[in-house]
């Protein structure tokens, strides 16, 4: 059963410099219990996609396309209707556990808020439930911690509180936007493990956003690689890492220092920087930095080619890209 169906989503931001096309023609389908990873560098539109799903886009944003949650179009909902969905059927974990919790309220109060609002629990019931949730996300001594303010907790514990908050109404979809970027590797490991267990046990769908290919590879079933506001490559995680095809994905993978790589090889670099969303190239957004780029690339948006039933790539030079697999592309 398809839970989330995003069709041709476009997001445009009105800025003082002109129109910035943050997301272009994006399609996502997510079944119940499925996990999807979105990878990309800053400015590729991954966070904008997450905000659009939650109905939290900034006021200068205009959208087109469809965003269907169990058949209902979220883009057409009023703010009032969105309030009953947000935090209830869909919940989000933000990147900065330091700034996304309210510093003047106790964590208990913050977890109780959605419980009372969406599930209509009494104050006492909500308090008990909040305690149970804190215990569930692995915070030691929940009956004491519930009275703590965010500053009394460590970064990892704050992120656990954020997860407890997101879980409070057993949402259908959990969106995690760089949930571990601000944390140490060991704490990151614990948090990802926690998210993974909770998703398995509660049967939630997960959208995990990260710039780290490693995090995505180990925690999702499907991957979507975004560049310049579009999905340039999508596929199932099990296979995609053996068959990286789009020149950008190949470059991104080769540019990552990997443990065990040794010190004698130079790191592959992708020349240039991420594109300016205001003056995006007309055709393929990767044209300026792509070693395979030809005239065709600058003029027309490449079609989505199906590599096999689960793997799609947007590139004009598919054959050359496939031949270049293995890292020779950027030498």
């Amino acid at each position: 059963m398809t839970l989330l169906d995003v069709r041709n989503l476009n997001i445009t931001l009105q800025t003082a410099m002109g129109e910035a096309r943050a997301v272009r023609d994006l399609n996502i389908t997510l079944k119940k219990g499925e996990t999807l990873g979105i990878v990309g560098e800053s400015g590729c539109g991954k966070s904008m996609t997450a905000l659009a799903l939650m109905g939290l886009l900034p006021e200068n944003a205009t959208t087109s396309g469809e965003l269907l949650l169990s058949g209902e179009d979220l883009l057409e909902k009023s703010e009032k209707e969105m309030c009953t969905i947000r935090g209830n059927r869909m919940a989000m974990i933000f990147q900065e556990p330091m700034t996304s919790l309210n510093p003047v309220h106790t964590v208990g109060r913050q977890i109780m808020e959605p419980l009372r609002l969406h599930r209509g629990l009494s104050k006492k019931e909500a308090f008990e439930e909040a305690k149970r949730l804190l215990d569930r996300v692995g915070i030691p001594n929940p009956s004491e911690r519930i009275r703590n303010h965010p500053h009394q907790l460590s970064g990892g514990q704050r992120q656990r509180v954020m997860i407890a908050l997101a879980l409070s109404c057993s949402p259908d979809i959990l969106i995690a936007d760089e949930p571990t970027t601000a944390l140490d590797v060991t704490i990151q490991d614990q948090i990802l493990e926690l998210i993974q267990t909770l998703v398995d046990e509660e049967g939630m769908s997960l959208v995990l956003i990260s710039h780290d290919l490693g995090v995505i590879a180990e925690n999702t079933q499907k991957v979507m690689v975004m560049y310049g506001g579009t999905a340039v490559e999508t596929g199932s995680t099990d296979r995609i890492f053996d068959e990286l095809t789009h020149p950008y994905t190949q470059g991104l993978f080769a540019a990552m220092p990997k443990i065990g790589m040794g010190r004698n090889r130079r790191l592959t670099t992708i020349p240039g920087t991420v594109p300016d969303l205001i003056n995006l190239p007309k055709g393929c957004t990767f044209t300026d930095r792509c070693p395979l780029a030809s005239e065709k690339c600058g003029g027309a948006v490449p079609a989505r080619s199906q590599m096999n039933e689960s793997h799609t790539v947007m590139c004009h030079h598919l054959d050359k890209a496939i031949k270049a697999r293995g890292g020779e592309l950027y030498q």
Binding site: S154, G156, Q157, V185, T186, I187, Q188, D189, Q190, L192, E193, D212, L213, G214, V215, I216, A217, E218, N219, T237, D238, R239, I240, F241, D242, F253, M256, K258, I259
Partner: peptide, 24 residues
């Protein structure tokens, strides 16, 4: 050992066996 194991690996396939660090 634990620090090295905690780094996620960008590769397809099964999750690795490893010791996880508990606590802060």
């Amino acid at each position: 050992r634990i620090l090295l194991d905690a780094v996620p690996q960008p590769a397809s396939g099964k999750k690795r066996d490893r010791i996880r660090l508990t606590g802060n």
